[in-house]
Design a binder for these strands. Structure first.
Lengths: 240, 240
DNA sequence: ATGTTTTTAAATGTCTGACAAATGAAAAAT
DNA sequence: ATTTTTCATTTGTCAGACATTTAAAAACAT
């Protein structure tokens, strides 16, 4: 960690980039402690506040965590899937809303990715998974649910479905696509009629999951995709 | 943007979360300017350095950008797919390396996601796309390439393939999965024999793309997946 | 000797005030 | 009318101070 090239940008960015590189290149081990802010300030020949701003940048990406007190400091974080999940979803939501992505486009991506799991879901689903999905389907049948609650349960169901593939990478990647759709899906009005149809699709899908029938899962998902797109037609060109 | 609930955590985190919420909820429009650091400090009743640390956190997630000078300040960023891409890849790389994800698991996810694009690639590929892929295949035939260069071209080829689907969400999501694999793939030694086989697979895939044959693309990708997994066998249990 | 309390030192968190540097706009000079 | 200069605003950086947290060391009591 030298204090070379401080060319163009501001110091705190430069420094945070350098430390980030060191973490990616494994020059710094997970769990190890960075020098104290005062030491870093001396090493990089900058003020303490500059170091602090650099560290805050890294903390925002959960690359480090800080602890106060005697043997405190900044520690290289072990990034877990859950940590990354939230940020992934937030970013995806903003990407959808800021880039005028059509409902149809987002829908297409979401279901295409879900279908990518079908093969593994059929192979690896456990009975616990099935119970969890069936519970959501039951929830969705309750007529007292608000549109938001119905939608939330729908998203949960699809999350469970994806997790059935038992591949953490798939789960992580798809979380962005599936959960980022929630704001869009929340704009749909779920009539009694449409809820019934969606639940029928879900029941068809869970049957295929039970039977370990990948083709059937795909078919059910495709049908659901088509129906979701028609429901989304009223959300015209783009999501504002 | 009030200064309510400053419960548990430290102030700068609290404040950055509040502003982040305002951005997600569209209380603050894209492109609009936040109050100056001094004004924010007054509003939140904290020091300027606290505000600055909060803003640095947001900047690290490219939620805002800052400009110096007279009519400068912090502006709500329009997050584009390219902006999010780099962070997505970095995070994915760290997730893979820090969570002892098996090569096989990462490989499975990567190819499953790529296959999810096949249908759209077959429908939407342009002649320009095909030329770009063929160029990479030619590159890969040059024997003078180092393993790293061969691998880089391989990754580029698959990026182009994914982009053929003309769905920015898919491209963005898959970039993480595909490019994050690069450090793992770089550990593979590409013998003359294995390069030849990979190129054969690529040629089979590009043929199917030309013929708009989704099934064929899937088949080619699956074959390539199997072969990649055998190549990766020497990378034993996990990526260290 | 052992357990408890107090003290201490180290580290981050926060505030204040100062100055540097960039930048756009207004004012002045040409 | 055009160019130059000045000026005000705002972020970037630094330095010093104090608050707060925390673990370990020291002091104390049992």
């Amino acid at each position: 960690m030298k204090n070379e090239k401080r060319n163009n940008a501001n110091l705190s960015t430069e420094i945070s980039e350098q430390i980030k590189e060191s973490i990616i290149n494994k020059d710094l081990d997970v769990g190890s402690r960075l020098p104290s802010e005062l030491e870093l300030a001396e090493q990089f020949n900058v003020g303490r506040s500059t170091i602090r701003e650099a560290l805050k940048r890294l903390a925002a990406q959960s690359l480090i965590r800080t602890q106060r007190g005697a043997s405190g400091g900044a520690f290289i974080n072990h990034i877990k899937f859950e940590d990354a999940h939230e940020q992934q979803v937030t970013t995806s939501i903003l990407l959808l809303s800021m880039n005028n992505v059509k409902f149809e486009t987002a829908c297409e991506a979401r279901f295409a990715l879900e279908r990518a799991c079908a093969k593994f879901v059929a192979q690896r689903r456990t009975n616990t998974d099935i119970l969890a999905i069936e519970k959501e389907i039951l929830t969705q049948g309750q007529s007292k649910l608000t549109d938001e609650e119905f939608c939330a349960s729908d998203i949960r169901l699809h999350r469970i479905l994806v997790d059935c593939a038992k591949n953490p990478i798939l789960s992580y990647q798809l979380a962005g696509a599936v959960e980022a759709m929630q704001p869009l899906m929340n704009m749909i009005t779920y009539t009694v009629r449409s809820r019934e149809k969606i639940i029928l699709f879900h029941q068809s899908i869970i049957r295929s999951i039970k039977n370990r029938d990948a083709e059937g899962i795909n078919f059910g998902l495709s049908n659901l995709e088509d129906y979701t797109k028609t429901l989304g037609q009223n959300i015209l060109a783009s999501y504002k």
